[in-house]
Amino acid sequence: MRQHSVLRTMTKLLMPPIMLFALYVQFHGDYGPGGGFQAGVIFAVAFILFTLIFGPTRARQVAPACVTTPLTAVGVLLYAGVGVVSLLLGGEYLDYNVLAHDPHHGQHLGILLVELGVGITVWAVMVSIFLAFVGRGAEDDPNADETVDEPEDGHA
């Protein structure tokens, strides 16, 4: 796929809007449809598109394993950490009312952080899973960057 200049250019053009849309979905989830789960998936889709076109080797340079693997845990820890903070501030576990002076602001802050945790975990898990699958095929195949693209060509 790397030699198709149309696909390459379109990928470069599409990636920023996809990621921006993911951030919109993440932080606008309180007001419209959306939230951490969808945002994480959409953010991962940008990386998957990149991997499909440019191959797993370059994708691993963009999202190295030393970043994605710890981030899978960071999201869960952020979520659980919000609960612990609310415990320390005198509330019940995951009771966001105590996070700020005003219960409403507390709820808002809590939901924002929790959704961010969900988004980080979902993004990291989806990217890791996809790169694990692609990396498996690419291990000892010199032209394996194309492994995943072939089928889509065949049935387009």
Binding site: F37, G40, M126, I129
Partner: peptide, 9 residues
Amino acid sequence: LTAIVVGVA
């Protein structure tokens, strides 16, 4: 909503 994402994982 949560079940879909858990489902894909």
